[in-house]
Amino acid sequence: MTKNLLALAIFGAFAGAAQAQSNVAVYGAMDIGLIKATGETLAIGRGDNNKLGFKGTEDLGNGLSANFRIEMRFEPDTGTTESGGRRPLFQGRSVVGLSGPFGSIKLGRDLTAVQDPIGDFDPFGFQTVGSLDAILGNYSTDPSYAGSSGNRLSNGVYYSTPSMGGFQVNATLASKEGLNGGPQLNSNPYSLSATYANGPLATLVGVERSTAEDKFWTVSGAYRVGVANLIASYSRLNRAVGVKDTNWLVAADIAVGVGSVKVGYGQVKPENAGANKQVSLGYWHNLSKRTMLYTDATRRKPAVGDSSNAFDVGIHHTF
């Protein structure tokens, strides 16, 4: 009996040490609301991606840690996996890597060095009908996934330097291998960015080559003045076929009590064509740190054809 108690005590001590050195968490988001767009019936939909993920860190000692993260998407109104032809189960993220004094390196599928920080320069954060088209324009990092937002690369290596006074350099390089039996790519997709975030100022400078060999570069900045975060972004898309797009936007995210008013205007202008214009307005109300109510409206005016409107109201909860 004494030996059994001693064995249990030793096992418990080791288990406690392992638990202290490792951390695994379940996280996610639920977003659902009502959406009405011109020419469409009122529908139950989502403003943000609904996700379920697992992430963990293991302390390896001497400042070195092992990390992993996997994240899947689903439709909130039906409970099915996300529709639209997005084929990977863990299409959101699927990476494992190491971090330490050198920064962090990971392998797998994730947001690229440009696509990860660029959402900070859309006051709607790529969420809701208000999301400004001009933040990316007609660009897609990986257009091979039909129905996908195309802002991730598979078979990639991701590196970020340590943050030095708010300044950080990020790099992504993907292999040429074809996906789902497709042909091998002609060149390696890559993404490079330099970001700065310190005090009231945040900036992003980035360049990226897609799986279709389109090249996208952007310069974006935000500056906080009192309760308002003022945002501007300019980008160019040089398509492999020779057509160029120019995108720009101006926006603001203004704190109002426990919520925020979001407003923005942007243009996407293909070469030798008129500009596609968009204006958006929204209000997001925080009920807690994890739950908010939102409502947004947007109007798009294409260079050719009729204008269209969209409106939403919904609830967003993170866990």
Rank of each mutant, 00 (worst) to 15 (best):
S163W: 09
Y139C: 02
A18F: 14
Y234K: 08
F216C: 01
V268C: 02
G79I: 00
R69G: 09
G100V: 02
D120H: 06
E75Q: 03
P76S: 03
S99A: 07
L34D: 05
G282I: 04
T81L: 08
L89V: 14
G206A: 07
K176C: 09
P117H: 03
N238D: 15
G242A: 05
L60K: 07
A146I: 07
K176S: 15
A37Q: 15
Q184W: 09
G97H: 03
L230T: 08
F121G: 01
S193I: 02
Y159R: 04
R46I: 05
T141N: 10
S187R: 10
A197P: 13
S288E: 09
A255W: 12
A7S: 15
S94L: 06
T298D: 10
G182T: 11
S280C: 10
A9F: 10
G119C: 05
S144N: 09
N151T: 09
I44L: 13
R93D: 01
F216W: 13
K269V: 02
A232D: 11
I135T: 04
N50A: 01
G150R: 01
S65R: 15
A222P: 10
Q127Y: 01
I135V: 11
M164W: 11
V96E: 11
G242E: 07
I118Y: 00
T161I: 04
L34N: 05
A17L: 09
V243R: 01
R69M: 13
Q278A: 01
P189D: 04
K51T: 14
G147S: 01
D245V: 04
G199T: 06
L136W: 04
V169H: 01
V241C: 09
P189K: 02
G282A: 08
F121N: 00
L153D: 00
A174C: 10
